[in-house]
Nucleic acid binder design. Structure first.
Lengths: 95, 95
DNA sequence: AATATTTGGTTTATAATATAAACTACTTTA
DNA sequence: TAAAGTAGTTTATATTATAAACCAAATATT
């Protein structure tokens, strides 16, 4: 058994946490992700941008009660990438 | 359920692969690790040093058939760290 | 009504990490 | 004895992660 490549986009604690949340909730606000992950705004902003560039999530910017609101949704590619990442990890876990 | 911290020493593809191998074989030569992980010598050298500094492995340098030989062994702390890392990962995997 | 504070972020600068390239030291083979 | 191979280490560079600083607008305070 060889070691599978670990998708570098997902092999990041914060991006993985975000994806993990989006897998279960399907759609989440920036503030929700920030609270759940305990990330700083700056870091979260950068990381969701990377996930978007990779095509793993969709980012929707809108206004809610006069405030800007950033919504994140996982894409089908994102779901597949997450599943593959989990599978790849198992090759390291001596399961 | 919150996300557990991922030990940064282990959250590296190559170091994780090395630890995964050492969990199963208990002791391995540098060249064996290099072949199994497909790493370059330089990268492997750096990463096993970090694992040693963290106390996760022991490095024994000796000579074998006139050639230098570097042997790596996992330590009890290394085993615990690996197990904790695997447990922490599960909090991201929505198992 | 001006000013301070809060919300909800982004951009930028810096620190940490991973990796490859270059190098060292020695051995074997031609 | 020169070339090539073994077994690595060191160093330079590219990539990543993170925090600090900033921005724009809303709301609260005096």
């Amino acid at each position: 058994m060889e070691f599978k490549e670990l998708d570098p986009i997902l092999h990041s604690q914060l991006r993985l946490a975000v994806m993990s949340l989006l897998i279960s909730v399907k759609e989440a606000e920036f503030t929700f992700l920030k609270e759940k992950t305990n990330a700083t705004s700056g870091n979260l902003s950068v990381q969701i941008s990377k996930l978007k560039e990779a095509g793993y999530i969709e980012i929707i910017k809108q206004f809610n009660n006069n405030y800007p609101q950033t919504i994140c949704k996982i894409t089908p590619e994102g779901i597949i990438a997450f599943e593959n990442y989990v599978k790849a990890l198992q090759s390291y876990m001596t399961l």
